[in-house]
């Protein structure tokens, strides 16, 4: 096959994609939890601010956000490489989407549990960390999974800021071999199989985390 000599190069790109996605997954979960906590907080100011963040980053194309950070940050004296910029932008955009998912997970929690925790004299941060967060995360693992799959697909856009992840290296291979159709067709199938595997893993994780409840769902 024509692609065989280029496989190691493509694998390097795939590794970079995997690294960026793993870091961005972590980042977007942290941001998502924080923003979801703000949005469900009793302070109208904080929940309003969190809503504006989510609304803005969900309704502006990712590529515009990416360019905003990539060209904008050096302007204010912050010099970071393309990889860090990409992970940052992915985390912020992913955070907006995952916060929405986590928020609905929080709102679905039985208020009796929260009242019981309050009566037991637990402080608000403790209630959030020990009770709200674990329940919300494990019930919303499936929608969080589709956010993550979207993150993987979106990471292909990082190739536009000179980052040679999977799509970026495929672009180089396509222009080296003059076989763009074969290269991009394979790339399409690679991404599709990758996201399919992720969705299988998420299904398994969902069943594992919720094994003690909802026997009909799991």
């Amino acid at each position: 096959m024509i692609l065989a000599p280029h496989v190691p190069f493509l694998l390097k790109g795939a590794l970079l994609t995997a690294e960026a996605c793993a870091l961005a997954l972590f980042g977007s979960l942290v941001i998502g939890l924080l923003v979801a906590a703000l949005r469900t907080s009793s302070s109208p100011l904080l929940s309003r601010a969190a809503f504006i963040y989510v609304d803005l980053f969900r309704n502006i194309p990712f590529i515009v956000q990416l360019f905003f950070f990539f060209y904008g940050l050096p302007e204010i004296g912050i010099y970071i490489d393309a990889f860090t910029t990409g992970v940052l932008a992915l985390s912020i955009a992913g955070g907006a989407f995952s916060s929405d998912v986590i928020r609905s997970g929080i709102l679905a929690i039985d208020t009796g549990i929260l009242e019981a925790a309050e009566v037991s004299g637990l402080s608000k941060p403790t209630i959030f960390r020990k009770i709200v967060m674990p329940i919300a995360l494990r019930t919303s693992i499936r929608p969080l999974g589709s956010v993550f799959i979207n993150l993987v697909l979106t990471s292909s856009i990082l190739s536009t800021i000179t980052l040679n992840e999977l799509t970026g290296s495929a672009k180089i291979v396509a222009s080296d071999t003059f076989r763009p159709f074969e290269v991009y067709a394979v790339l399409l199938i690679v991404y599709a199989s990758l996201t399919y595997l992720i969705s299988l893993a998420i299904g398994a994780l969902h069943r594992r985390l919720n094994r003690d409840r909802m026997p009909d769902v799991a």
Binding site: T154, P180, V183, L188
Partner: peptide, 22 residues
């Protein structure tokens, strides 16, 4: 399923660079 689970950017490259070559 294939179209839903692959990046639009790659689909775009496939049509714009791949189809003319094929």
């Amino acid at each position: 399923e294939l179209l839903k689970n692959s990046p639009v950017l790659v689909q775009l490259f496939l049509v714009f660079f791949g189809l003319p070559a094929l």
